[in-house]
């Protein structure tokens, strides 16, 4: 694989993960437990769409086939999406949504921080712009893990179940493949494995404070970064892409 192809793949991974998570968060609109959280959820979704747009616009330029952010978002099928499996998991209850966000935010903060030093100026710029938002997202999701974990018996049980259920999708964040290796070598990206220990420390610290038990190491699902997804993604895309698919070629 050439460096340009690897960079394209890499940018899709970043952009698609942000986009798919934003899409999931958008499903909460008007349905959150309290109005303040409706606003905070929408705000996080907005930040992530902003990040997705920057990554995907750059991906389109790197690919050089005239695909812009919208053609990439709305006219690719599931097997061409490169998001991690974690973000496509359904919203479930509020604890499930928070656990998904917490695992992702704890990774995103560290990934963006590493990418700020990228040898690719555009990557470094996008990462720098997004990091402040990601730090705030992590603060919020970690705060909710603590409140729900160390809240009532019911909330602790739900938060623990969510933390356990999604654990299997966290390993993929740290598993390197050829794309990761090419980009790490050229200094555009980073070695995903290097984020594992700091991520685990941060996660464990929050789980401790939340009186929750960190899941035992177990089998880790993977495939999203290579385009092999869970069944959930197809439905998400069917909904998201409906207008562009039903009215081809329209300007909106």
């Amino acid at each position: 694989m050439g460096r340009q192809d690897a960079l394209f793949e890499y940018l899709l991974r970043l952009g698609d993960s942000a986009l798919v998570l934003a899409q999931r968060l958008g499903e909460w609109t008007g349905k959150a437990p309290i109005i303040e959280e409706d606003l905070a959820t929408a705000n996080t979704a907005l930040d992530l769409i902003g990040q997705a747009r920057m990554w995907l616009a750059y991906a389109g330029e790197v690919e050089g086939k005239g695909r812009d952010e919208d053609r990439l978002a709305f006219l690719r099928d599931a097997s061409d999406f490169r998001n991690v499996l974690l973000v496509e998991q359904p919203n479930g209850n509020f604890a499930d949504t928070i656990a998904r966000q917490f695992y992702f935010d704890a990774w995103n903060v560290r990934a963006l921080d590493a990418l700020r030093g990228s040898t690719d100026a555009r990557v470094a710029d996008i990462a720098g712009k997004s990091l402040k938002e990601a730090r705030y997202h992590f603060e919020r999701s970690a705060d909710w893990v603590v409140r729900l974990g160390d809240g009532t018996d019911e909330s602790r049980a739900k938060m623990q179940a969510a933390i356990d259920d999604l654990w299997t999708y966290t390993g993929e964040l740290f598993a390197a493949d050829e794309v990761d290796r090419i980009l790490a070598e050229s200094g555009v990206g980073f070695d995903p494995g290097s984020l594992h220990a700091p991520w685990m420390d941060a996660v464990k610290q929050v789980l401790d404070e939340a009186t929750l038990v960190a899941p035992a190491a177990g089998y880790m699902q993977r495939g999203g970064k290579q385009g092999v997804h869970t069944e959930n993604l197809g439905y998400l895309l069917a909904e998201m892409q409906f207008l562009q698919r039903a009215y081809p070629g329209g300007q909106w």
Partner: peptide, 28 residues
């Protein structure tokens, strides 16, 4: 909110999210 997940472009999706978020803020 019914159309946030189906907005036709990423820009429209972002604008609609911001708009609906404003409505919640007005409620507050």
């Amino acid at each position: 909110g019914n159309w946030i997940t189906r907005a036709p472009t990423l820009k429209r999706k972002a604008i609609l999210l911001a708009k609906v978020q404003d409505e919640g803020g007005h409620g507050l």
